[in-house]
Structures are given as structure tokens and as C-alpha cells.
Nucleic acid binder design. Structure first.
Lengths: 154, 154
DNA sequence: GTTGAAAAATTCCGCCG
DNA sequence: CGGCGGAATTTTTCAAC
């Protein structure tokens, strides 16, 4: 499941460039990596085939889109067997953007993105608190996202 | 700073499609949104001009890339005035992918992505613990990322 | 906001080292 | 076999309306 695939230097260089900007043309990547455009195409097709590349998405300024409040939620479960069910129910909430199963006090750790603190309050009260299997939650409101980037390969 | 820009339904539909897959051609978006290709182009140019769209990036399976361990770090600061300096120093650590200024006990909350628990241990001990201004940290290791998605517009 | 046409990129395939 | 190069198709890009 967590296998490590054989990636060569060309693969990593291609990925590093596309992580920075997924819209740069393959022909330009080809020039920078010193291979042909066809090769970039073949390498990307293989990386997608392997499931390493799952697609591309936009980098957005959520603040400017009106989603200025983000929060982390530490969730205490009534018993650990409800994990899968709680995840399913969290997934149904559009404001939940990521869910982690973590070590430590919390069983589940989630991140929410909301328009404002009122919206966050509503989501917590009307959606999260109603989920079966949750004992209680601790909320950490992010007042400012000082940084957010993709991992650097190598 | 946190202004709300006027986006119409067309803008939102275009963004929603590109969030799903930033590589679909503007011509295809045009068909789905019932406008011309030129209009999609103009709308995206404006959204980039406004800074709402900051670019595009790849969606990757970090597990398969050999980065299977992710952790959240609650950081207690010696005094709140060191915030900016601590953020600067965290930014220098390649394994740190996001930094938040939060309410609650921690002054700073960060996320790290590492190859394995040994790598995480090394980063915490050799890099994070050396930062001036940090009193102590609490680590939450994510054993599994059950979900990770972009926010849904509307 | 649309159209249409030039420029560029993608994509595929036969060939070669 | 993996990489290269060229050609057909599609997309991007932009000016005129």
C-alpha cells in the first residue's frame, strides 16, 4: 500500500516543476529537463497510471473568496470502533476539508474552512455536534495562515 | 485585505470545474458553462489579476512518493512577540508545509510531512527544537489521512 | 461576450540508438 | 525498450466586432 516507486531524476524534476505550476506546457518542461516533449508526456502518463499523480487543482486565495476562517478540530470519540462511521459523517459536511486519524488524545483530527466565525459556529453546532459517536471536540481557530505549500521533493 | 470580490455564477462554475481538474481545456469548460472559450479565458485572466487564482498544482499521493508520515505541531511560544521570527525559522524547514497562527493554548500550529517516523523525529529534534523563541511543542502524528479535498464553492 | 484565425501545445506513432 | 522527432489534432490566445 505504502510502496515506494522507482522514480528517476527526470520524473522528480518534472514533478517539481509541475508542483510549482501545473499549467506550464510539457514542451517547456522538456526544454528545462533536457528531454523531448514526448518523453514528458510518457512519464506523466506513467505517474498517473501508478496513482502518484492524482490530478491537478487550482491554488486559490480563500480569504479573497470569502472563506477567511479556518479551524482545526480535535475530536474525542466515545469509543474507537466508531471511527469509520464518524469519518463518513464528517465527509458529508462540505466545510470539512481534511480528516486525519491521529495519535494522542484525539481520535480524529479535522480541518474546516468557513466564511466567518458565525458560519464556523453554525457548522460546529448544527452539524458536527450532531454526529453519533463523538464525545466532545476542541476547536483551534486559525487567525492567519502564515504559509501553505506543497512538499519539496528531495 | 479580506475583501469579498464580486463573482458571478459563471466565475463560480468555472472555478468549481477547475478545482476538480485544473487541466481540463477552457474550450470544454466553455461548453459546460454555456459561454465561449474567449469568455472563460477573460474570466480566468481577471481572477488571476485579482489574486483569487494564484496558480495550479498537482494532486499527489504522498504515501506513494515515500512521504507517508504527516504530523501536526502545537507550538508554545516563550512570548508572543517572537511569533514573526518563529514563523520565519519554520519556513526554512522544508518538511514544514503549513503554518497557522491560532487561538487557544498554542501560539503557532504547523503541519509537517516526513518520509517516516524516524525522519519526523530527526526534524523535530535537529530543526524544530533549535528554533529560538519556542518554549515547547506537542506533536500529533497522523496515522492516516482519511480525506483531503478543496473547499466546495457554494 | 462572441467570433474567428494565427500561434502554440498536445498527442500519437513510426523510427532509431 | 525507452527516448526522439515530426505531423495531425486540439487548445490557447488575442484582436475586431
Amino acid at each position: 500500500m505504502a510502496r515506494n516507486y522507482e522514480l528517476d531524476d527526470t520524473d522528480r524534476k518534472i514533478l517539481a516543476l509541475l508542483i510549482e505550476d501545473a499549467k506550464i506546457p510539457y514542451t517547456e518542461i522538456a526544454r528545462k529537463v533536457h528531454v523531448s516533449g514526448g518523453t514528458v508526456h510518457v512519464r506523466m502518463a506513467r505517474l498517473e497510471e501508478l496513482g502518484i499523480v492524482k490530478g491537478a487543482t487550482l491554488k486559490l486565495d480563500y480569504q479573497k473568496l470569502g472563506y477567511g476562517v479556518s479551524a482545526f478540530l480535535g475530536i474525542y470519540l466515545l469509543k474507537s470502533s466508531v471511527y469509520a462511521s464518524v469519518v463518513e459523517q464528517l465527509r458529508e459536511i462540505p466545510e470539512v476539508v481534511s480528516i486525519h486519524f491521529t495519535t494522542g488524545a484525539y481520535g480524529v483530527f479535522a480541518r474546516l474552512v468557513c466564511r466567518d466565525t458565525q458560519h464556523l459556529r453554525d457548522v460546529l453546532h448544527d452539524k458536527v455536534q450532531l454526529i453519533e459517536g463523538i464525545e466532545r471536540t476542541e476547536t483551534l481557530i486559525s487567525l492567519e495562515e502564515a504559509m501553505n505549500r506543497a512538499i519539496q521533493l528531495q
